[in-house]
């Protein structure tokens, strides 16, 4: 039951450090080389994402099964929101990392990826129009972590432990929503403008879910066609969704 200000500063502190791909980029890209760079980066980011989730106040108090379930559901949405945040001040570019920046045309070499790049660029422009603030961004990311639809809408807890974990998760979601409302209230807007902003920001979450679903299909197709070798943590996270 942390004060909102403290809650928000804890999730700000949980932010992962900047990550570099650290590969010799050979341009022009081939389908295989671009997919390899993208998956290598994703694999590194996933390790940091797990440390990030553990620092969200209350996350480690959920049952281990729920922690696993939530991360397996949302990982690509979280990666995509992070990508959009890094790209928000660079119109027309996707800043995967400081040493791995792509424009939409470069997506041409990977079958089916330009469509996803375009969606990411469009959603990034929307965040640019809205002038997304860092405090809002960290709240949205935590909301994505806790917003598994399977979890909230389809599973009914069977045991006392499951029920307790679900209740904790809902309380945690309350805290994150309160924190987002609080962050918006600091912007000097009228009450009506604050309500509209909350609506616009949260509606973007459905676009992020949609892009994540498209991205997941794309990655599993690339894996099936042996364009890229998916291994380790990324494989585990992908398999959970296919």
């Amino acid at each position: 039951h942390l004060h909102l200000e403290e809650f928000i500063s804890r999730i700000m502190e949980a932010e992962p450090p900047e990550i570099y791909l650290m590969e010799d980029m050979k341009k022009p890209f081939t389908e295989a080389s671009m997919m390899m760079s993208l998956t290598n980066l994703a694999d590194k980011e996933l390790v940091l994402m797990i440390s990030w989730a553990k620092k969200i106040p209350g996350f480690l108090e959920l049952s281990l099964a729920d922690q696993i379930h939530l991360l397996k559901c949302c990982w690509l949405e979280i990666l995509m929101l992070g990508l959009m945040w890094r790209s928000v001040d660079h119109p027309g570019k996707l800043i995967f990392s400081p040493d791995f920046k792509l424009n939409r045309e470069e997506g041409q070499c990977v079958e089916g990826i330009m469509e996803i790049f375009d969606m990411l660029l469009a959603a990034t422009s929307r965040f640019r129009e809205l002038k997304l603030r860092r405090e809002e961004y960290v709240c949205l990311k935590a909301m994505i972590l806790l917003n598994s639809s399977e979890y909230l809408c389809t599973s009914s807890p069977q045991t006392a432990e499951e029920l307790e974990s679900r209740n904790k998760m809902l309380r945690l979601l309350d805290s994150v929503i309160d924190a987002l409302v609080w962050a918006i209230s600091k912007l000097g807007l009228t009450t009506q403008q604050q309500t509209l902003r909350l609506g616009h920001l949260t509606m973007l979450l459905s676009h992020i879910r949609h892009m994540s679903n498209k991205g997941m299909d794309h990655l599993s197709t690339m894996k099936r066609k042996n364009v890229v070798l998916v291994y380790d943590l990324l494989l585990e996270m992908l398999d959970a969704n296919t």
């Binding site: 797990i50 440390s51 281990l64 397996k72 996270m237």
Partner: peptide, 13 residues
């Protein structure tokens, strides 16, 4: 043990 489980259950340094 999966890698995700392993990363979740290791104590932060």
């Amino acid at each position: 043990h999966t890698k995700l489980l392993q990363l979740l259950t290791t104590k932060p340094e």
